[in-house]
């Protein structure tokens, strides 16, 4: 292989005049983090609501939850992003579609919401399983004390269910971060996007993607460590799965 390794490339100025190549990658990393965080918040909020709905006695709530989950998890993420970015503006009334297309940072919002909704289906299924794993008597005990359904979920079922599903939720958080890379296809220049531009400008493909790989690993290592701390922080003394 005839390849000129050049690890100093990161400290050379990039052709866009925004500093060095490293600055370019770091700005991509920052965009990845922002997109992933917003997507994760969306996933947690909608996933929690839908997950709870799937455990309610109401048939309508269950079916809404069922449709939500099957819609968002049975379509490839890439197709979903294309739908939101290219198809949705055409389906809307002209004014609304135009407004969407001209939205500043449209790729960012589309990616965050698209990945967020995609991941919400997964969070919903995890939460449903978490609630389902609690003894049936817990809900009965809450009800028997006079707590309403909302109070029962808020004070009794959800605090335990979320503790139980913290380890799988960690994986879902990591998936959210990694899935933001798909947004390169709708023009979001996040970490993967910046690594590719660096390769195109400098022809140092291995250096660029080595750096991107290391940055992804670092971010995910931080998330894993933080979640471990969280798990330990909310662990319940004497409770087996809490340890």
């Amino acid at each position: 292989m005839n390849y000129n390794w050049n690890w100093k490339i990161f400290f050379e100025p990039n052709p866009m005049g925004t500093g060095t190549y490293l600055d370019m990658l770091l700005s991509g990393l920052w965009l990845t983090i922002k997109t992933a965080l917003l997507a994760w918040i969306i996933a947690l909020i909608f996933g929690s609501i839908v997950g709870v709905m799937r455990t309610l006695p109401s048939k309508a709530a269950y079916w809404f939850g069922f449709c939500w989950v099957e819609f968002f998890r049975n379509m490839p993420l890439l197709v979903q992003l294309f739908l939101w970015f290219f198809v949705l503006p055409e389906l809307l009334p002209k004014a609304a579609g135009l407004w969407l297309k001209q939205l500043p940072n449209a790729p960012f919002w589309t990616a965050a919401i698209g990945v967020g909704l995609f991941m919400s289906a997964r969070v919903a299924v995890q939460l449903q399983a978490g609630i389902g794993s609690l003894p049936r008597g817990q809900k009965m005990a809450a009800t028997a004390l006079g707590l309403t359904t909302v109070q029962g979920y808020r004070y009794v079922l959800l605090p335990m269910a979320f503790r139980i599903i913290l380890p799988p939720l960690t994986s879902e958080f990591l998936n959210t971060i990694k899935n933001t890379a798909v947004a390169i296809t709708i023009g979001l220049i996040e970490l993967t996007g910046q690594a590719r531009s660096m390769q195109e400008f400098s022809f140092q493909v291995f250096e660029a993607f080595t750096a991107a790989t290391i940055l992804y690993l670092l971010v995910n290592a931080v998330v894993v460590t933080a979640m471990r701390f969280l798990e330990r922080w909310v662990a319940i003394p004497g409770y087996i799965t809490g340890r």
């Binding site: 003894p135 008597g137 817990q138 005990a141 028997a144 004390l145 006079g146 707590l147 004070y155 409770y239």
Partner: peptide
């Protein structure tokens, strides 16, 4: 809920809230 709050109930498996 109001009625239940005036009727105490004890279960076979205790059902204390573990957290």
């Amino acid at each position: 809920p109001k009625l239940r709050s005036r009727v105490g109930m004890v279960f076979q498996h205790f059902e204390l809230f573990p957290h």
